Each structure stands twice: as C-alpha cells, then as structure tokens.
Simulated assay, not measured.
Amino acid sequence: MVVLSTLFLVIGLSIITCEGFNGQLQLPWWGVLFVAGIALLFTLPIGVILATTNQGNGINVITEYIVGLILPGKPLANVAFKAYGTISMGSALYLLSDLNLGHYMKIPPKAMFISQVNSSRK
C-alpha cells in the first residue's frame, strides 16, 4: 500500500512539474504516464538479466528513440523523457537489489522499504 501511494504521489508530482512552468519542459502529461509504463515494462526483464549476469542494460537509448519519434523538435521533452525513464528504472533496480539483500538477511520488506525511502545514499 505504501509503495503504490508513493508511486502515485511521485507520478502526480511529475505531471504537475511537466505541465507547470508555462509548458517550458515541453513534455505533456501523457508523456509522463507513457515513460512510467515503459520503465515498469522493462524493469522485470532487465532486473532478471542484472540478477543472473550482473550486467545491467539501461533503457536510455530506447527512451531517446521513442520520444524522438513521438515529439520531434522538442529537445527538452527528450531530456525529461529520458531522465524520467532511466532514473526511475535505475532506482527501481537499486531498490530491488537492496530488498534482495534484506531478504537474505531476513529483514522484513516493509522495514527495508521504509529505510530505503529515508536513506539519502543515492
């Protein structure tokens, strides 16, 4: 429940940020939802690859290509789309690796999540 409320809060704040500032960021509200879906879609396969081979692949090139096709001539939208996609998936994989370590140490997942939210390591 805490994870979903945090997810919706952050997506809402991202939409407010992109739509605010008189549209200077050039990324529409549906772009934020689209990049959240892309990050959600690619987190599982890339997480499995990272867990088995310790070689992580990012989605930065994929996000650049997709937003370049959808919103041509808008460089700030490209940068924002890439940042939202790459950083959100990277943070998710970082959280999953810490939750995995907590699982091996028999620390409850809720306590691990709360400590991750409160930490300022990354």
Rank of each mutant, 00 (worst) to 15 (best):
H103P: 03
A39E: 04
C18Q: 07
I114L: 15
N78D: 11
S88M: 05
Q26Y: 01
P45K: 01
L69K: 06
L44G: 03
V48D: 04
T63H: 05
I49A: 09
I16S: 02
V67T: 01
W29L: 03
I62Y: 07
Y94V: 13
F21E: 15
I62W: 11
A83S: 13
G56H: 09
L96Q: 06
P108F: 12
E19A: 11
L101H: 12
I87T: 14
A51W: 02
V67A: 01
L13E: 10
E19H: 03
M112H: 04
I49L: 10
S14E: 10
R121Q: 14
G58F: 05
A92D: 06
A80Y: 01
Q116F: 12
G68R: 00
F34R: 00
G56W: 00
V117M: 15
V32S: 00
F81I: 05
V61S: 14
K122H: 15
L27S: 02
N54V: 08
F113S: 04
P45S: 02
G90M: 01
T6H: 11
T52L: 11
K110G: 10
S120P: 00
S91W: 04
M1V: 07
F8A: 11
V35P: 00
S88K: 05
Q55N: 13
H103Y: 09
V32G: 08
S120W: 12
N22T: 14
V3A: 14
L95T: 08
K122A: 15
V67L: 04
A77L: 06
S91F: 05
A80D: 07
P72K: 07
F113D: 07
N100H: 12
L50R: 08
I62S: 04
I62A: 11
S115H: 14
I66V: 12
L4P: 06
G56E: 03
C18S: 06
N54R: 12
I59N: 03
Y84H: 09
V2F: 14
F34K: 05
L27Q: 03
N22Y: 10
L27N: 06
L40F: 07
L27D: 08
Y94Q: 12
I62V: 15
E64L: 13
I70N: 08
L76T: 08
G23D: 01
I11C: 03
T53V: 00
I46A: 05
Q26W: 04
G37T: 04
M1D: 12
A92V: 00
G56V: 07
Q24W: 08
K74A: 09
D98H: 09
G20T: 01
Q24C: 02
L101P: 09
L27R: 00
P109I: 07
G85W: 00
S115W: 11
S119Q: 15
P109H: 04
P108C: 12
I16W: 06
Y65E: 13
L96K: 08
S120D: 11
K122Y: 15
L33S: 05
V35Y: 01
G73N: 01
S120L: 15
N100E: 11
A83N: 07
M1R: 10
L25C: 00
M105Q: 15
L13P: 01
V48H: 03
C18W: 09
L101V: 13
L40M: 01
G37E: 06
K122W: 15
V67W: 05
S91I: 02
